[in-house]
Design a protein around this nucleic acid. Structure first.
Lengths: 170, 170
DNA sequence: GTCTACATGTAACTCGTTACATGATTAA
DNA sequence: TTAATCATGTAACGAGTTACATGTAGAC
């Protein structure tokens, strides 16, 4: 999809600055999309040039100006079009599986064990991060957002089970 | 990781041409890493310039020359170093979850239903693709490779279960 | 006095995709 | 005769990362 649509989606929920967007990505949207600060600013510039967002500069005393962005009509239409367009198939890119796949070449059984341990630690950490986020479950839009979190948790749990399977084989 | 290491890994299993690598990615390694043809050729050039692979040109009558690549000592060391290096944390990039997350904005219940249906179809198709691949389960290296397949299947099954959950909420 | 939060960006780079370009052989 | 297989690459673009660059206010 690219960052464009994620930004349009967040600005639709609430007008924001690049700085705010970064914080939002790092907290509430962080479980499904990570965004880099400099790419956010760059993309905002592009979206603005395309007329999908509009900018309002808000002066502040004793703080840098806020450049607040909100969706235009065209931006709203673009977001809607994206939601209704067919999803392109995404090529798999699983670096960890690649390591496991190639780890057989060494005759070192400790290598696979180390890979598994490192992975397990990472998965457990992410799992507790996601579980720490409370998801509201009232109205439909919020319930959908809670379900995206649930998706991440389910996959991490699957990964842990699979790591157990793998370790048994060693 | 980037394509470099996947290529080094495959060339370690067997010396190959760019063309062969592409076929290998599309078939046996396709469930964990997808590679683009032109990027394969470009990367082979870089690896060669770095001395990690060496090239042997094999003339053929009535076919284009084969440019066959094999790992050098340095390439083998690089592969090993990669397998033993800590895995960088990978930023999440889940376009489908992003769609679900933002789909609440429209008051159209059919939209989410359509997203779910499309996703389910895609997951089922990938699942039958992966299941169609037979995995040898004899010695350890092969068993590890079979397990990477099993990982993909497990996650796809989890995704189907989650889609059911999601649909119940609607 | 030092660290965190606020707030903006540019330049250069890496990785991956799409489009372009060529041409013989073999199987259906 | 038409499609697939063999076999190579380049150019341009899009997406994302890293490093560089700047400065104030308020909390501890």
């Amino acid at each position: 999809m690219s960052l464009r649509h994620a930004i349009l989606g967040l600005l639709d929920l609430q007008p924001m600055t690049g700085y705010d967007l970064k914080k939002t990505f790092d907290s509430t949207a962080g479980h499904f999309w990570a965004a880099d600060r400099s790419q956010i600013y760059r993309t905002l510039g592009v979206l603005r040039a395309e007329g999908l967002v509009e900018e309002e500069v808000i002066h502040q005393r004793s703080r840098p100006d806020r450049h607040e962005y909100r969706l235009t009509e065209a931006g709203s239409a673009e977001l809607d079009g994206w939601l209704r367009s067919p999803a392109p198939t995404e090529p798999p890119r699983e670096a960890f599986l690649a390591r496991i796949y190639f780890a057989g070449r060494t005759d070192d059984p400790q290598l696979v064990r180390a890979l598994v341990e490192e992975r397990r630690a990472m998965v457990k950490e992410r799992l507790s991060e996601l579980r720490a986020i409370e998801a509201p479950t009232s109205a439909l839009p919020e319930r959908l957002r809670a379900l995206t979190l649930r998706n991440g948790i389910a996959h991490l749990e699957t990964e842990l089970t699979w790591l157990d399977e793998l370790e048994e084989v060693l």
